[in-house]
């Protein structure tokens, strides 16, 4: 099922060294920096989940706010309005997101959408989703939903805020990056990359395009929804303008592209660099000249994309990785 490279990655002291070191950061960092890193990990997880569709099969989906929103708003509503345990809410939301993903993949195939039509249709789905959320009181409407205080009760999907949330996000981000490694080392990864590069040729060598694209979209949607649920628990407030708005997808696409599309560690790298950069710029400059931090942030992004169009990861690899050969080639 999966090539040995995946198991080599799983056994890599580098991987677990980095994760363990990361896990110790909240012990030494202030709660402010722990918060920034938690948000960065949310985006590592989201960008890596998006990568399965956007990077590997090359379908620039803007529908992912729909999946984040499903994971966040639906599980929050189920808890607040119906008293349904958030673990169950997580599963229900993830299943719903998976179904929505399958429907989008089917529409894409049935109507043979080109790249641009796919982008626009997925954006339309996201817009519709945000309208539904804002207009439907069950999901909190425009004013959102306030979750009960996080008292650290694990059985209620509570992790004690702060450090607990950081560890949950670190775990989720690690798992989703490893899912990327697993897919790239399994038939699905080969199928998706072939479809991305040449759909007609992929069919000719036996690739079932509908099935593989649907599989990718469902995996991506389910993972994204799970992150959405964990994120809303951390935020405690289910804000539709953050969690169900297409803007969040644009950020995800940006991080994944800057880091390296279609690569297992690319989107993670992009999010880990850009989220803290954005936060620090805002903290240092946001008060001085309004909008200056956005401007500098934009320049950094433009320079990176122009300098290394396939992303930072290929650049980093050329600089150190291949030489050390400690990490398996993905």
């Amino acid at each position: 099922m999966i090539k040995d490279d995946f198991f080599k990655t799983l056994a890599s002291p580098w991987l677990w060294g980095i994760v363990l070191l990361g896990a110790m950061l909240p012990m030494v960092l202030s709660s402010y920096y722990t918060h920034i890193l938690t948000i960065a990990l949310v985006y590592v997880a989201l960008a890596s989940a998006w990568n399965i569709v956007g990077g590997m099969s090359g379908q620039i989906s803007l529908a992912h706010s729909l999946f984040i929103g499903t994971g966040a708003m639906l599980s929050a509503a189920l808890l607040v309005k119906l008293g349904i345990n958030m673990w169950a809410g997580l599963v229900i939301a993830a299943a719903t997101a998976g179904l929505l993903g399958a429907i989008i993949a089917w529409i894409d195939f049935r109507f043979q959408l080109g790249h641009l039509s796919f982008v626009l249709i997925t954006l339309a789905f996201a817009e519709m989703a945000s309208i539904v959320v804002e207009g439907w009181d069950f999901l909190g409407g425009a004013s959102g939903l306030l979750l009960p205080q996080d008292t650290g009760n694990f059985l209620d999907f509570q992790f004690g805020g702060g450090r607990g949330a950081f560890w949950v996000m670190l775990g989720l981000a690690t798992i989703i990056v490893l899912v990327n490694v697993a897919i790239l080392n399994s038939p699905l990864g080969y199928y998706l990359r072939t479809i991305r590069d040449n759909e007609k040729a992929a069919q000719a060598i036996g690739v079932n395009v509908l099935r593989q694209k649907t599989t990718a979209m469902v995996i991506s949607a389910v993972l994204t929804s799970i992150v959405g649920t964990a994120y809303v628990r951390y935020l405690t407030f289910a804000d539709p303008y953050l969690l169900a708005s297409p803007v969040i997808t644009i950020e995800i696409v940006l991080f994944a592209t800057v880091g390296g599309l279609g690569r297992a560690y690319g989107p993670a790298l992009g999010a880990l660099l850009l989220v803290p950069l954005g936060e620090v710029l805002r903290g240092k400059l946001g008060g001085a000249v309004p909008g200056l931090h956005y401007f500098i942030y934009g320049i950094v992004v433009i320079v990176v994309i122009l300098a290394t169009p396939s992303g930072l990861l290929p650049l980093f690899e050329r600089l150190f990785w291949r030489r050390s050969r400690m990490l398996p080639k993905i």
């Binding site: 038939p187 080969y190 992929a202």
Partner: peptide, 10 residues
Amino acid sequence: TAALTRRPIR
């Protein structure tokens, strides 16, 4: 990818 038509990935 072509070989995956009839063979396991290994």
